[in-house]
Write a protein that binds this DNA or RNA. Sequence first.
DNA 1: CCACCATTCAATCGAGTTCTTGATTACTCG
DNA 2: CGAGTAATCAAGAACTCGATTGAATGGTGG
Lengths: 222, 222
Amino acid sequence: MNKREFKDRVYERVALVGKALASPKRVELIELLAQTERTVEWLALATGMSLANTSQHLQVLRGAQLVESRKEGLYVHYRLASPAVGALHAAVRDVAAERDAEIDRLVRSYFGDRSGLDAVDMSELVERAERGEVVVIDVRPPEEFAAAHVVGARSVPLSILDEVVATLPRDRTVVAYCRGPFCVLADEAVKRLREAGLRAVRLHGGLPEWRAAGLPVASDAA
Amino acid sequence: MNKREFKDRVYERVALVGKALASPKRVELIELLAQTERTVEWLALATGMSLANTSQHLQVLRGAQLVESRKEGLYVHYRLASPAVGALHAAVRDVAAERDAEIDRLVRSYFGDRSGLDAVDMSELVERAERGEVVVIDVRPPEEFAAAHVVGARSVPLSILDEVVATLPRDRTVVAYCRGPFCVLADEAVKRLREAGLRAVRLHGGLPEWRAAGLPVASDAA
DNA sequence: CCACCATTCAATCGAGTTCTTGATTACTCG
DNA sequence: CGAGTAATCAAGAACTCGATTGAATGGTGG
């Protein structure tokens, strides 16, 4: 095998990973799976695709070795093949967000001006948590919290936020996090907490970013 | 704009980056540009593509904001749009290498069994360099060395290696590095140095990985 | 200002992708 | 065993992508 042939074959394989990330729907599937494993049906519902189409995309991802599946009774559960895949997805998304002005424009027009709710970054949160200055809440759905969450965080899904507000401290800052930078849950939580008179900020990034940064994650026993 | 529409549009833009990485030839172009900027003609020659085809791929990359170009006289020079792009490429390549057994097979069959030449990783090199135990040589072509190299490394292109062997210390280990994990230059250098009776190992990864790790890089003034 | 050269553009063809629809498989539960 | 359900498979229509060819552009140097 000569050099040219070797390179062609290796780059061909590397490009398979790129191909897997080349479809918007597959990117979305990976982002969802970065939270926790899911069934095909759930993913189809969440992405608005037909079942068959969802299944097809998942098989492309499996072909690229980015996801794995496990059958349990009637349901097939898909999950990321390794945490490195989540980190890769975040890297692609971050490069896109950094370089592509159109994404910036879209985020602004959808989230409104986010500048009011200043976000805290992960290293800052770690420091302030050590000093006991903050309370961390996870506003994702309970099953995502159960699969993995920031150590010390309390599960407060948006649906029960209003009932829980009274139990949150008014003398400390509440830091809310959710799925990632394009997830609105934390913004919504911060907005509501502020309306209730608490000090609240969102965390830059969500659970996948936290995990990718190598910071400690806990999960509930099944 | 509703949530579904927002997601579709954002993922669409993110997938553009994936698309850019979805062709073997474009992956190769990015890897080459991770070393230093190049003209279209040089890239066409290096990849074995026609000029028009090379130009077309470069424009796809520019469309995804991964590369930039600059015209100087007759020649157009392309370069990565940001170091983050090099890091992204490395991340994609590493995930591919980790998950895809076929790549492992290809590397083995092309490099032969590499296990004889134990490689040193970057943090280990930094330690041993501080203790003065090693000499670092850069075996890439001189223009790539000029564009960026490991601080303290000496430029020893393979073409002049044999003449330079006599000037390398026999009481310290020589660490050779080149373009990256799929580059054969460092292996070849290590092999020849060992035949000459020196202690030699290669560095895990090449210059782009070194830079991506945030380790110090120097460049010659133009 | 003309000949030349690096690069890009435009048009084309074959190959590959995406999504849909309807059939099929594999498993569970009554 | 047989009805019901989650998921996959198979095949086709519309679309996109990749490489080639030949022409066009824009800058250089005689």
